[in-house]
């Protein structure tokens, strides 16, 4: 049923989108997803790609080039022609944080942004048998004992925790884990005191399997107002993560605008909104290409400050 609906919508869009003159796009568009096939980020990209197909009236070929948190896909996109027929999908920190680590040779200025389609939410989770229930309790426990064990997943969360450790004068034992699953295992099994987690910790908290004591994203967790944000706790840091569509530097403006408009429509679809809110448990947000570039520039500045504090 669903499929038929798309088909009809697609056919309708095709008829409407083919006026007398040849307009972008007149052939299939390749979307390079910067993550392995099958994860939450990839699923969002594929849903959006399906919606864009109905908007643009052309096939969208989804290709996965995972690795380096979107860096591999970014490198690839930079080598492609800037005609709008090859675009990429990565996250905000790919451009705002990864370049600061000095491991890649691109910055946010080396690509053109098309749009931000949705936001990610990230939290600090603690085991349910932890001797504390909130952030203040965690800090008190850590001060009392002198140290806490913290399960880290990505360089950014590690940097933020180092920053907090410095501010609070506690020793943070950073335990590296492989991906979200490794960190969750460490938290659920009570092998660490605190761990970084994506929004998949929320249903676990609702089930009483773990405690969520703070949110790293500045927007906080709308449905659980009691969870404080780092900003609310008086720290001048945050992890703002969002899904970003981008293309090679100097993209054809007409094509870029067309893609941005298609994405602006695509994010309004019921399928996508349901996915983001109820399945992915991120949050809805749409930013134009220009706004995306501005917010990434602001993030970069904030992270530079963060790195400076850690390096002190």
């Amino acid at each position: 049923m669903h499929f038929m609906k798309h088909l009809i919508a697609g056919a309708a869009a095709l008829v409407m989108a083919t006026p007398a003159f040849a307009e972008f796009p007149d052939k299939s568009v390749t979307l390079v997803v910067g993550f392995r096939a099958g994860g939450g980020s990839d699923a969002a990209a594929r849903i959006l790609a399906a919606e864009m197909e109905t908007q643009l009236g052309q096939k969208i070929i989804v290709e996965n080039k995972g690795g380096g948190g979107g860096a591999v896909a970014t490198q690839y996109i930079r080598s492609q022609p800037a005609d709008g027929y090859t675009i990429g999908f990565a996250v905000a920190t790919t451009f705002a944080f990864t370049p600061l680590t000095g491991r890649v040779d691109f910055t946010a200025d080396d690509v053109d942004f098309i749009a931000t389609t949705h936001g990610y939410r990230t939290v600090y989770a603690a085991p349910k048998e932890a001797p504390f229930d909130d952030w203040a309790g965690m800090i008190a426990t850590a001060k009392d004992r002198g140290w806490i064990n913290y399960a880290s997943i990505i360089p950014l969360d590690r940097a933020i925790m180092q920053y907090i450790g410095k501010k609070e004068d506690i020793a943070v034992n950073i335990v590296p884990t492989r991906g979200g699953a490794g960190a969750r295992q460490a938290v659920l099994g009570g092998h660490v005191d605190l761990g970084f987690s994506g929004s998949n910790a929320l249903p676990m908290m609702e089930d009483g399997a773990l405690k969520v004591i703070a949110a790293l994203n500045p927007e906080g967790i709308a449905e659980h107002a009691q969870i404080p944000t780092l900003g609310g706790l008086g720290y001048d840091v945050a992890a703002s993560e969002a899904a970003v569509f981008f293309g090679p530097k100097g993209m054809d403006p007409a094509a870029r605008d067309r893609l941005e408009a298609a994405l602006a429509e695509a994010v309004k679809s019921e399928t996508f909104r349901d996915f983001v809110n109820n399945k992915f448990r991120g949050f809805e947000t749409f930013r134009s290409g220009a706004d995306t570039a501005a917010s990434i520039a602001a993030d970069t500045q904030a992270y530079e400050g963060l790195m400076a504090v850690i390096a002190e």
């Binding site: 099958g38 994860g39 699923a43 699953a181 295992q185 676990m204 992915f280």
Partner: peptide
């Protein structure tokens, strides 16, 4: 029960479960 995938195949399954509204967890 824990949402922890044991290998790559299982990791992909978690993603698919999420897409279809099944949230793995103790409950």
């Amino acid at each position: 029960t824990l949402g922890i995938p044991g290998n790559l195949t299982a990791a992909l399954l978690v993603g698919a479960f999420l897409i279809h509204g099944v949230t793995p967890g103790p409950m």
